[in-house]
Amino acid sequence: MTVTLIAAAAENNALGKDNQMIWHLPDDFKRFKQLTSGHYVIMGRKTFDSLPGMLPNRTHVIITRQKDYTAENCIVVNSLEEALKVCPQDEEVFIIGGGEIYKQSMAVADKIELTRVHGTSPEADAFFPEIDPSEWILEQAIHHPKDEKHKFDFTFETFVTK
């Protein structure tokens, strides 16, 4: 199994505020869809609740401490360890948030697909964990300047474990 964290985070690692993303980057959404389609996506309950609905062509695995939580057409578990066990062991699975789930997942991740949004967000209340350069190698970086559809410059960064 390859465990990949996928996120969009500002230079100060800000992910979102009040369970919502801070920016709207259509090319980031396209990349997210392209990379995660056909795969299992693991997320915390708050992240699932923030989605506009089911993400098409993906199997949703929701981690929650709530013992009686149910979500139609989703797999509900109570820990990251359980989430990883219910996923196919010979495929890439994606951790899609939120901040607490990313933090728990860093130790088991093989890859990080990060959209680094250039700028900071002081009002954020959820953050991506620090990427330790002694444990991760930046394998690829593709810069995307701001334009009429994107209010921020950003870079698609792919990290792999050393």
Rank of each mutant, 00 (worst) to 15 (best):
Met1Trp: 03
Met1Arg: 00
Val3Trp: 04
Thr4Asp: 00
Thr4Cys: 06
Leu5Gly: 03
Ala7Val: 10
Asn12Ser: 10
Asn13Tyr: 06
Ala14Glu: 04
Ala14Cys: 07
Leu15Val: 01
Gly16Cys: 02
Lys17Glu: 15
Asn19Phe: 04
Asn19Glu: 07
Ile22Asp: 06
Trp23Ser: 05
Trp23His: 10
His24Cys: 12
His24Glu: 10
Leu25Met: 02
Asp27Gly: 03
Asp28Ile: 08
Lys30Arg: 14
Lys33Asp: 09
Lys33Asn: 11
Leu35Met: 13
Thr36Asn: 04
Thr36Leu: 05
Ser37Asn: 08
Ser37Phe: 07
Gly38Tyr: 03
Gly38Asp: 00
Val41Gln: 09
Ile42Cys: 02
Ile42Gly: 01
Met43Trp: 09
Gly44Arg: 03
Gly44Tyr: 09
Arg45Cys: 03
Thr47Gly: 01
Phe48Asp: 07
Asp49Ala: 06
Ser50Ala: 07
Ser50Lys: 03
Ser50Gln: 02
Leu51Pro: 01
Met54Cys: 13
Met54Ser: 15
Pro56Ala: 05
Pro56Ser: 10
Arg58His: 05
His60Val: 06
Val61His: 04
Ile63Met: 01
Lys67Arg: 14
Asp68Ile: 08
Thr70Pro: 07
Asn73Met: 14
Cys74Met: 05
Cys74Leu: 14
Ile75His: 15
Ile75Met: 14
Val77Gln: 06
Ser79Glu: 05
Leu80Arg: 01
Ala83Cys: 12
Leu84Asp: 04
Cys87Pro: 08
Cys87Ala: 06
Gln89Val: 13
Val93Thr: 13
Phe94Glu: 00
Ile95Gln: 08
Ile95Pro: 05
Gly97Asn: 01
Gly97Pro: 04
Gly99Thr: 08
Ile101Tyr: 02
Tyr102Val: 13
Lys103Leu: 14
Ala107Trp: 04
Ala107Arg: 09
Ala109Met: 06
Lys111Tyr: 08
Lys111Ala: 04
Thr115Pro: 06
Thr115Leu: 07
Arg116Glu: 12
Val117Phe: 01
His118Arg: 11
His118Gly: 10
Thr120Trp: 02
Ser121Thr: 14
Ser121Met: 15
Ser121Lys: 14
Ala124Tyr: 04
Ala124Val: 10
Ala126Ile: 03
Pro129Ser: 10
Asp132Asn: 06
Pro133Gln: 08
Ser134Arg: 11
Glu135Ile: 15
Glu135Asp: 14
Trp136Asn: 12
Ile137Tyr: 12
Ile137Val: 12
Gln140Trp: 09
Gln140Ile: 11
Ala141Glu: 14
Ala141Phe: 05
His143Met: 11
His144Tyr: 13
Lys149Thr: 12
Asp153Arg: 12
Phe154His: 15
Phe156Cys: 12
Thr158Gln: 12
Phe159Gln: 07
Lys162Gly: 09
